[in-house]
C-alpha cells in the first residue's frame, strides 16, 4: 500500500514542477560577430542546406539552429570562411572523421546538455571511447533524427551484430527489441550502460515472472542473469551460455546424476536436459521441500 502513497506524492510533485516549468523562461542567446546567415551558406552548400531545411532543427519554434544562427550555430561563424574563398576546414568547423570527437559533441551539447538523460554523457563509455553525437545522428535528414537501430550500433559493435543473428537470440533483428530498449547510449552510471541499476533488474522489466522473490531462490538468478544467459544471442537454446547439462554441471556435482558424464551412450531419460526434472530453475514457489531442488 505504501507505493500508492509514493505515487500520490510524486504526481502532485511532478505537476508542481510542471507548473514551474511553464512559468519560467530564459532569454535568447546573444549573437556573435562574423555571422553571415544561412542564405550565404546556401550559395555554395545548397544540397546541405536543403537537407537541413527538412530537418527538425530548421523549425523556428525550436530554440536552436534556425532560431539563432542556422548553419553557423553548429559550424561556427562563417565570415572568415567566406572571406578566404571557402574550402574544407578553412575557418569553419566541420564534423569530419578527424575532427576531435569531444569538440564535435560540444557543439551539440551546447543545446542538448539539458536534454533529459544527457547529464550522464560524461559518465558514459561512449564519450570515453571517442564516440561523438554525429557518430550516430545525422542532422541533415527529414523528420526524426533518431539513429536507425540496430544498424548504427552494429557499425561498431561487430560482435553483437553476429550474436544477434545466432540461432537463439532476442528479437532485435525482428524489430521487437532495440538496443536502446536495454541500453542508455547517452550515458549511464550502470555497467554496459544498461537502463537499470543492474542487469537482472533490467531483465525483470519484461521477464517479471522471474522476479520473485521465490520461496526457494537460485542465487545466480538473483545475482546476474548473464551467469547462464548470453543476452544478445547464442548457439545454444534459450540464449544459454552453454549447452545443458554442461552449463548446470559447471556449478553442480553431487552423488548419482549431477556428477554423471552424459556422453553419447547416456540413457534417453537424461536427454531432455536437467530442466526436464528441474523446471523451476529461476526459483520455486512450492510449499514442498521439492522446491529446494526446483523440481516443483
Amino acid at each position: 500500500m505504501k507505493i500508492k502513497y509514493i505515487i500520490l506524492f510524486l504526481l502532485p510533485l511532478s505537476l508542481l514542477l510542471l507548473s514551474f516549468s511553464l512559468a519560467t523562461g530564459e532569454t535568447a542567446g546573444s549573437k556573435e560577430a562574423g555571422f553571415i546567415g544561412a542564405e550565404t551558406c546556401k550559395d555554395c552548400h545548397e544540397a546541405q542546406y536543403d537537407s537541413y531545411a527538412k530537418s527538425v532543427h530548421f523549425k523556428e519554434s525550436i530554440k536552436g539552429p534556425q532560431s539563432q544562427d542556422a548553419c553557423e550555430t553548429c559550424h561556427g561563424a562563417g565570415a572568415m570562411h567566406v572571406e578566404k574563398g571557402g574550402g574544407r576546414d578553412v575557418d569553419i568547423f566541420t564534423f569530419d572523421l578527424d575532427t576531435d570527437p569531444q569538440a564535435k559533441s560540444a557543439r551539440c551539447l551546447a543545446c542538448h546538455q539539458r536534454t533529459p538523460g544527457m547529464d550522464l554523457w560524461d559518465m558514459g563509455v561512449h564519450k570515453r571511447n571517442d564516440v561523438s553525437c554525429d557518430s550516430c545522428h545525422d542532422l541533415h535528414v527529414a523528420g526524426r533524427q533518431k539513429p536507425n537501430e540496430p544498424e548504427v550500433c552494429f557499425g561498431c559493435h561487430r560482435d553483437v551484430k553476429i550474436e544477434a543473428n545466432k540461432r537463439s537470440h532476442h528479437p532485435i533483428l525482428e524489430g521487437k527489441v532495440s538496443c536502446s530498449s536495454c541500453h542508455s547510449p547517452h550515458g549511464s552510471l550502470s555497467k554496459s550502460m544498461v537502463k537499470a541499476d543492474d542487469p537482472q533488474q533490467l531483465c525483470f522489466n519484461c521477464h517479471a515472472d522471474k522476479r520473485g522473490p521465490a520461496v526457494w531462490e537460485h542465487p545466480p538468478v538473483e545475482e546476474n542473469c548473464q551467469s547462464c544467459h548470453a543476452v544478445h544471442g547464442s548457439n545454444h537454446a534459450k540464449l544459454l551460455n552453454e549447452r545443458i547439462p554442461q552449463l548446470c554441471q559447471n556449478c553442480h556435482d553431487w552423488s548419482r546424476h549431477p556428477g554423471t558424464p552424459y556422453d553419447n551412450t547416456a540413457s534417453y531419460t537424461s536427454r531432455w536436459d536437467c530442466l526436464r526434472c528441474h523446471p523451476a530453475i529461476h526459483g520455486s514457489n512450492s510449499p514442498s521441500g521439492g522446491g529446494m531442488r526446483y523440481v516443483r
Binding site: 514542477l17 510542471l18 516549468s21 530564459e26
Partner: peptide
C-alpha cells in the same frame, strides 16, 4: 514527456 525548452524542469511518465 513535458520538457519545456525555456524551463529548467521536465517531467516524464
Amino acid at each position: 514527456t513535458v520538457d519545456p525548452q525555456q524551463s529548467p524542469f521536465y517531467v516524464k511518465f
